[in-house]
Simulated assay, not measured.
Amino acid sequence: MRVVDRPHSHDWTAAAVGVIDADARRTADTHLLKVDLPAWAHRPGREIALYLKDESTHPTGSLKHRLARSLFLYALCNGWIVEGTTVIEASSGSTAVSEAYFAKLIGVPFVAVMVRSTSPRKIELIERQGGRCHFVDRPDQIYAVAQQLADDLGGHFIDQFTMAERATDWRGNNNIAESVFAQLAREPRPIPDWIVVGAGTGGTSATFGRYLRYQRHPTRLCVVDVENSVFLPAYASGDAALTSPGASRIEGIGRPRVEPSFIGQVIDRMIGVPDAASIAAERFISDRLGRRVGGSTGTNIWGAFALIGEALAQDAPTSVVTLLCDAGDRYDHIYFNDDWVAEQGLELAPPTAVLEHFWTTGAWEPGE
């Protein structure tokens, strides 16, 4: 009889999972904020409600904290991360910041593969968590270089773009969808009409879409997409092989290829949002909340307002939930910087006028 054992420290893995679980319990859940809408939202029999799931309050400051936690638990329980494993990711954004946090938490090295043009602020946040940054010249190089680094170092390429949709338990287990519905339970409309999210990996939209079907909720899922992203064109055409030569200016969402975690079949509607509209909406809602939010939140708000405007035009009540993905202090140098906006050739006045008109009258008239 042949017996083959594979050396593995179950004690170390158990301890690592326990550390991550304890961190989740300490940080608890994020808030669901109800936006104070104008008087047109409060007509008896036609109440309009807008909620923001505030993901900026996670320890690493963004929605990606949930994803990073799920990715690490998935890799640990699959035996892909063991004691001393170097974890590598292809990301220069919030996911890398959050993953660096969890790598530090369980005591393994972390390397983020990113383009050289990555903002110093993001590099600083990754390095502050103990991560190391490995630079490449072009965005399309990050995947292959990350895998090569993993091979060379005997490490693990954690691969958010492939693993996002499978690492999260979409049936529940305190995922973001389950959290939202639990927090809505005592609201006048506990089952919202729409959930609005952006797509970066596609993991969040996959989680919401699957959860809605599993729970048999009539809620529809709307995904907002940005310029230089192929998610919307691929959704419209059914061609998952589409690519884009450019990169999204709205950090955290939009991709130049259809990522493996993007599951278009669970999406009910997609809305394309111009970059100028995302930034205008980011600034607009920041002013009304009294705190700065990030660019992807602006994209979400533009989509949410479009759906509310549609309901108002039909004189129908509606409830919309979207995400406050991260705080705006990460973007002071770009989205809140008028010089940067001008350098990008973006005109914020037209979409700002649309937003102000909507806020005043309830009429959504974005034009062409």
Rank of each mutant, 00 (worst) to 15 (best):
A103G: 14
R116C: 02
R116I: 05
S94Q: 13
R116A: 13
T85R: 03
G107D: 07
K104L: 03
E89C: 04
G130R: 06
I123G: 01
R128I: 15
Q129W: 15
V108S: 05
M114C: 06
W80C: 11
A100C: 13
E99S: 13
S94F: 10
P120Q: 13
R128N: 14
V82P: 03
E99F: 08
I106H: 00
T118H: 01
V82Q: 13
Y101V: 01
I88C: 10
M114D: 02
Q129E: 15
V115Q: 13
V82I: 12
V97R: 00
T85I: 13
S117T: 14
T85Y: 08
K122D: 13
A112V: 03
L105I: 07
V108I: 09
E83H: 08
L105Y: 04
V115F: 00
E83P: 08
K104W: 12
F110P: 00
S92D: 06
V97D: 00
T85G: 10
A100I: 11
V111L: 10
T86R: 03
V108R: 04
K104S: 15
T95D: 05
A96Y: 11
V97Y: 01
G84L: 07
T85Q: 06
A112H: 01
R116H: 11
G84C: 05
R116D: 13
I106A: 08
V97E: 02
S94R: 05
I106E: 03
I126L: 05
V108F: 07
G93Q: 10
K122N: 15
A100D: 12
V87M: 01
R128L: 15
R121N: 12
T95F: 11
T86N: 03
L125E: 10
A96R: 02
G107R: 02
V108E: 01
V115I: 12
F110L: 07
I123P: 01
A90W: 09
T95K: 07
E83N: 14
T86V: 06
A112R: 01
A103T: 06
G93C: 11
G93F: 07
T95P: 09
G93V: 11
V82F: 06
M114R: 02
G130E: 11
L125M: 15
I106L: 03
S117L: 08
V115H: 06
L105R: 12
E99T: 06
E89F: 04
I123Q: 11
R116L: 07
E99K: 02
G130H: 08
L125S: 14
V108H: 02
P120R: 13
R121Y: 15
M114Y: 02
E83T: 09
G130L: 09
S119L: 13
T86Q: 10
A103R: 08
V97W: 00
I81P: 11
E89D: 08
T86E: 09
E127P: 02
L105Q: 09
A112F: 04
S98L: 13
A112P: 05
S117C: 06
I88M: 08
F102D: 05
T95E: 04
V108L: 01
A112Q: 04
G130Q: 11
I123C: 07
I88G: 10
I88F: 09
A90F: 07
V97G: 02
A112C: 05
A100M: 08
V97N: 00
S92F: 05
R116Y: 03
V97P: 04
A103C: 13
V87N: 01
A112S: 12
E83V: 04
S91N: 01
E124F: 07
S119V: 06
A103I: 08
L105H: 04
G93L: 12
Q129M: 15
W80N: 14
L125C: 10
S91D: 00
V108Y: 04
